[in-house]
């Protein structure tokens, strides 16, 4: 009972206690390697990226066009019904200017990451990717962006076959 408890257990250590060996420890790096099966939907998606195209699947019941594609509709819980291409153009749904790499080390030049709602897919069907050819200060919500692909001979069938998305000027009518 909080105010009735006089002592809380735990002996805090400092990083230096570990680094300078003042406290004995055991170290370990697990050697686990994986081969994740891309499965039915994602295998086709990756194959199409190699062709410079983004493919989605459709559900005839809820009428959604879903990207990334999936073999079942999680809303209707039925198999999806067909494949369809969506555009490599989309709208910035939200974004962040990141100074962090995957391992939490700091980046000198930030990278811009965004969720991009792709044209031709149902509402809010975003994918996450990076933005390029733009100053972080210029990025805006709702901005139109287009995929910048690697040259065909460099594509391997990976999400990184798209280098990044860059802003496109909206044509005035």
């Amino acid at each position: 009972m909080s105010e009735k408890i006089k002592h809380y257990s735990g002996e805090a250590l400092k990083s230096a206690d570990i680094e300078e060996g003042r406290v004995p420890t055991e170290k370990c790096r697990p050697k686990a390697k994986f081969a994740w099966s891309a499965g039915m939907a994602m295998s086709r998606f990756l194959e199409e990226l190699k062709n410079g195209k983004i493919i989605a699947t459709t559900c005839n019941k809820c009428k959604r066009i879903m990207v990334p594609p999936r073999i079942y509709c999680e809303n209707c819980f039925k198999p999806t019904d067909g494949w369809t291409y969506v555009k490599d153009i989309g709208t910035i749904n939200t974004y962040s200017v990141s100074y962090l790499a995957a391992d939490a080390t700091r980046l000198k030049e930030p990278i811009i990451v965004a969720i991009i709602d792709l044209d031709g897919a149902s509402e809010s069907m975003g994918i996450i990717h990076k933005l390029g050819e733009i100053d972080p200060k210029e990025v805006k919500f709702g901005m139109k962006v287009k995929a910048v692909w690697k040259p065909p001979e460099e594509r391997v069938g990976a999400i990184t076959d798209i280098k990044y998305f860059k802003p496109i000027k909206e044509e005035k009518p």
């Binding site: 697990p30 686990a32 081969a35 295998s43």
Partner: peptide
């Protein structure tokens, strides 16, 4: 056309 994606789950550990 069925693909696999290779990767790891590398992390270092120090156990007290």
């Amino acid at each position: 056309h069925v693909r696999h994606w290779l990767g790891d789950m590398e992390a270092d550990y120090i156990y007290t």
